[in-house]
Design a binder for these strands. Structure first.
Length: 490
RNA sequence: GGGCCGUUAGCUCAGCUGGUAGAGCAGGGGACUUUUAAUCCCAAGGUCGCAGGUUCGAUCCCUGCACGGCCCA
């Protein structure tokens, strides 16, 4: 075994040999459990007040991964890490049975330990190893103990190694989970029910995006992975469920960027007999609860300021976007500002571009932008005061859009006309239109109550709450290009 | 999609206008029974991302490709 580049293979072979030796001694290499163990955090809570240099007189069991070792001849200290924290172990030739085999343990090994809790002279809470058991062997070398795994690509491709070595990665993963739990709780308290609607759809809709396509052999037809939950959830509102939400993955077959992932997590809720003003209050409540649960330092205390899109752009950019419907006026202004307007084919797109350029990117603390032009919003209800405006809002924070919502269009005839507009836009070359959905229109014809619908992009929200600049930092297994085979067989 | 940058030991990083590479940690051997980035001694570890080109000679210069990062769209 002396091929070049096989440091890691040599380590693996050495460790496999240790396993084989242990097996020949009759050791159960992969035992089925380790009962009655105490999480490290609980142990710390219970014994944290112990005076330095004193024993607790109490034995207990801890289990986790060996992350550091400091040897001292016939004694050694190890750091044991579980999901709740890190604790020092002290093994000695006198007190630890099988001390020699204990010394064969490698960094990364998972072990269970039983022994007395004591406070070292230097005040480090520790467990004396009075009995121990290998729970699973680590056959691969861990990254460097001080820097951990810092290579961004390796952290994403081998997230388990990132989580093993970088406590912050574990903290962030748990924070995301806590935030999601808190959002569910907030909605449940308001009488919402969580539902599940199709991921595989014969028609996609509810957003402006290109879908992934797949195929059902049994149904003998192509299906789409949903780009949004919207149209199914509104069918449930027609059916009388009144308050529904769904929290799961949507898929968009588009470019990947620091804030775009092809699969991403959406929370959508629909509230009957409510309008977009009610939606803003609930967004404030749900997001502030999520922020508290995630330990965010942002001030998300309601109420958040509200500005109309027209006011916000006029103030930030110095041009009134809604003075008329003239694309040329906006585009020439934007070009004077040095902006690339090659993607702004319509007046509405230019307005959207102004919003993201001058408003979205500058928002640090939470802000609602309200009252959007109808052209940007095929499923929103028109304002009773202005035919050209819809009752829609977006919430921005930390330079990011975190929520999009509106009073839902529930007039089936007008909804049909909006679909027709989308069809015309598609015929004109717009690749991100929403296709005619006859079954959805049929549902609306049975009557949908006035409803507010809200969508929250969970990944972007987590970026804001955890202060991450790349969506891959808040997705445990982000989309990456596949490497050529032969990345070392390692 | 465009521009810039990166890819060297398992990990974190050095490597001078081109002469086939160094350190720390991890791993191996040894000393050490309250250390905590423990310490000390010894030895070992490389297809310098991949493929071409220039050159007497390429980790280094050039081209292409792969993957990633940042910025722009």
């Amino acid at each position: 075994m002396s091929e070049p580049g096989d440091t890691e293979q040599q380590i693996r072979q050495d460790r496999l040999a240790k396993l084989a030796a242990a097996r020949s001694r009759g050791v159960d290499l992969y035992p089925t459990g380790f009962p009655h163990r105490v999480p490290v955090a609980v142990l710390r809570e219970r014994f944290g007040g112990l005076e330095p240099g004193t024993d607790s007189g109490q034995r207990l069991r801890v289990a986790g991964r060996v992350m550091a070792r400091r040897g001292h001849g016939k004694a050694q200290f190890l750091d044991l890490v579980d999901a709740s924290g890190r604790i020092q172990l002290h093994a000695t030739a006198d007190a630890t049975p099988g001390y020699e085999e204990f010394g064969d343990l490698d960094l990364g090994d998972l072990i269970g330990v039983e022994g007395e809790v004591f406070q070292s002279r230097r005040g480090e809470l520790s467990v004396r190893v009075e009995s121990w058991q290998l729970l699973a062997k680590c056959l691969r070398p861990l990254p460097e103990k001080w820097h951990g795994l810092t290579d961004v690509e390796q952290r994403y491709r081998h997230r388990y190694v990132d989580l093993i070595t970088n406590e912050q990665s574990r903290v962030d993963a748990i924070a995301r989970s806590r935030a999601i739990t808190a959002m569910r709780a907030a909605l449940d308290e308001e009488g919402f029910v969580e539902v599940e609607t199709p991921v595989l759809q014969p028609l996609y809709g509810g957003g402006a995006a290109k879908p992934f396509t797949t195929h059902s052999n049994e149904l003998e037809r192509d299906l789409y992975l949903r780009i949004a939950d919207e149209l199914y959830l509104k069918r449930l509102i027609v059916g009388g469920l009144d308050r529904v939400y769904e929290l799961s993955k949507d898929f968009r077959n588009e470019s990947i960027s620091f804030k775009h992932s092809p699969e991403f997590t959406m929370l959508e809720w629909y509230q009957a007999y409510a309008d977009y003003r009610d939606g803003m209050e609930l967004v404030e409540k749900v997001v502030s609860r999520a922020g508290a649960a995630a330990g965010s330092t942002l001030d998300l205390t309601p109420p958040w300021p509200r500005r109309s899109l027209r006011e916000a752009i006029t103030e930030a950019a110095g041009i009134d976007p809604l003075a008329d419907r003239d694309r040329e006026r906006l585009v020439s202004f934007m070009q004077e500002q040095g902006m690339d307007t090659s993607g702004d084919h319509t007046w509405a797109q230019a307005v959207d571009h102004l919003l993201s350029h001058f408003v979205e990117s500058r928002v640090t603390t939470p802000l609602f932008i309200t009252d959007y032009p109808v052209e940007l919003s095929p499923f929103s209800k028109r304002s009773p005061d202005d035919d050209a405006i819809v009752e829609r809002f977006e919430a921005f924070c930390g330079g990011m859009e975190i929520a999009n919502a509106y009073s839902e269009l529930n007039d089936p005839l007008e909804q049909r006309e909006r679909f027709e507009q989308q069809r015309r836009a598609a015929a004109a070359g717009d690749e991100e239109t929403t296709p005619m959905d006859e079954d959805f229109l049929l549902a609306l014809e049975y009557g949908m109550p006035p409803t507010c619908g809200v969508g929250i992009g969970i990944d972007r929200l987590m970026m804001v709450l955890l202060d991450k600049r790349n969506i891959r930092e808040v997705i445990l297994f982000p989309a990456l290009r596949v490497l050529e085979p032969d990345d070392g067989g390692a």
